[in-house]
Design a protein around this nucleic acid. Structure first.
Lengths: 343, 343
DNA sequence: ATTACAAATTAGCGCGCGTAAATTTTATTT
DNA sequence: AAATAAAATTTACGCGCGCTAATTTGTAAT
């Protein structure tokens, strides 16, 4: 990093002894220039800290190196974790991820897509709200930019979908709970914001029937993203009123389960699979905190890493395919049973 | 939103019956044009969905409408929450926030500052690692861009610092714990990543001495951001060995406390302030999950909203001051005692 | 109606880089 | 050594808007 400030690519080209168009080629793809030329440029880069002006770069390009990453709510550790991995995978591939949270609001999801348009992204990875999303807006966006969905699916939208196989994962949990004790009843929100919730309910019903049990579903009132609060208040109410017909409860997700564990504690109910316990509670997602609940939560771990990497790969393969019409793909990964003390 | 695509500002200016420079003025500040002109432009905007090319806009401007927001780790709910509020405050002010997480790595913090340079941000809000940060890099950045620090302070860096008054907040907690029972001992990490940890330790010592008690500090081994794990393993070890000299433990932050609560549960220790309890545990930060721990965690609530808003305000006042030399300001907000069952 | 001032217009340069076509240089093959 | 292909260079234009200076138009006050 030398002293003299490089003002533009022209100056840098002169200094490195290479013509400007070739330097431009280098920055767009270092592999595209001869090894000896590359060496010269990189030698100059060591001595002077020049980097091309992003704004000028992107102005005349039809597509940039930007990748939009939109998640419904970064305050939810699930999304901050998967968003994080997606972000890092993009950086590794030499792209510039732009991570946007919709803060729990479908309107902001729409706004986020709108602002992304201005950045001419090479592609976008979207974890949509689903039915709550502005479907038309997402469709229009899909028509204009390469789009890959993850976590939540929307039929026929995007070049690909990557997520977890809820049928498999819920069946795995039901199977385990039945094998190790009583068949579970199911606790969820009445109006879930996430389409996975519906898949999980259906998976629960199917699985219970397959095992010869009657499915029993309990739905909590409540809106928004305060899942723990809803789980605690509504779950606690059901527990106090002894409304659950079985002593084994499968929650639609870990955050509800965390709330219910808190309610059970308040009520003096011992949660766990020991003979002295009053209740078994299980969740779904392996939330970062589930390991530290009291007792630690038995749950299904989603394969964050695989989902994030695959989603990014799907997007890049779409980018490479370019004009060839590629079929829409759906990939789901298996959930993994994480046995802890709560069930 | 009409059919014909507007290609550039020239076309849009023709359609709206206004000259291009005036349209340009409008987009840079709608207030700067006459009411009647503004009305004409906005009427045209209703019919045609034109928006200026961001890249062309920012190319010749010395400073953009971008605001960088850098936090050490978005996976930590504390930072995702405060980052969220900062982000929204910037949007309200008509700026484009760019939220970057350093994923727990000081090197990535440096990289984030470097990539921000390319975006010519109007200003940057940084929650630094502190001593772990690349101090020189932060200083250099400070010299080149308006910079406001929040959460963690670094001496003489940035136009302002906004955070919580650890001396006040810890004293408040110590005072409460002493008044309601036994004086606390203090549990923290041996090599904390955050400078607030040091301030809290010192605040604990001062407060204890002021109250006529002997401070007792217990430090956990362990690196990284897995605070809950460290709290559970190391805290659990100390609990099992009955190493704590008192039955009241103040943890340096909620995440450590959450881990320790989990360990206490495993050991069959009853945590709380009732006569039948074995242990009191308190935290600091009012982590979003502290309300749902077993038992719910007594802690200090930081005023997220106030910190975020003030940090943003400090930055904007710096932007407006422009060349006038403004003194560096430090603002700390009081913590609020949140009494729950754990202590 | 005249004046004074603010706002809009016209005209035009420049930003830093992408990109294309034509040409020259370099590397590889026969 | 000559022929061929590949890479680099030269030349030149364009992107969309910021910004300025000089001029004209519009508005409000006298």
């Amino acid at each position: 990093m030398g002293q003299p400030k490089i003002r533009n690519m022209e100056e840098f080209a002169n200094i490195s002894g290479i013509s400007r168009p070739t330097v431009s080629k280098y920055f767009n793809n270092p592999e595209s220039v001869r090894t000896s030329t590359r060496a010269k440029i990189e030698a100059a880069l060591k001595r002077y800290d020049y980097q091309p002006n992003v704004f000028a770069m992107n102005q005349n390009r039809r597509t940039t190196k930007n990748i939009g990453v939109v998640v419904p709510n970064l305050a939810d550790p699930f999304f901050s974790e998967i968003g994080r991995r997606v972000e890092l995978a993009c950086i590794d591939a030499g792209y510039s991820p732009i991570l946007l949270s919709s803060h729990g609001s479908p309107e902001m999801e729409r706004d986020n897509l709108t602002s992304l348009r201005a950045l001419k992204p090479a592609g976008v990875l979207l974890a949509p709200f689903g039915r709550m999303s502005d479907v038309e807006a997402v469709q229009t966006f899909d028509a204009d930019f390469p789009l890959v969905l993850f976590d939540a699916n929307m039929s026929s939208i995007g070049q690909a979908f990557v997520g977890t196989d809820n049928a498999q994962s819920v069946d795995l949990m039901v199977e385990y709970l039945c094998r190790s004790g009583e068949a579970p009843c199911f606790f969820e929100m009445k109006s879930p914001t996430n389409p996975n919730a519906n898949k999980r309910r259906q998976a629960y019903i199917d699985s219970m029937e397959r095992h010869g049990h009657v499915p029993r579903i309990y739905q909590a009132d409540g809106e928004g993203w305060n899942f723990e609060e809803i789980g605690k208040v509504e779950g606690g109410r059901l527990l106090a009123a002894k409304s659950f017909e079985t002593k084994t409860i499968l929650c639609s997700n870990d955050r509800l389960a965390i709330g219910m564990l808190s309610a059970a504690y308040d009520l003096g109910l011992r949660v766990g699979h020991g003979p002295e316990c009053d209740l078994r509670i299980a969740g779904h997602d392996d939330h970062p905190f589930s390991k530290f609940t009291c007792p630690p939560l038995t749950t299904i771990a989603q394969d964050y890493e695989a989902i994030a990497n695959r989603a990014v790969r799907e997007l890049f393969s779409t980018l490479e395919a370019e004009n060839q019409t590629k079929d829409r793909s759906e990939t789901t990964f298996d959930g993994r049973l994480v046995m802890r003390e709560s069930a």
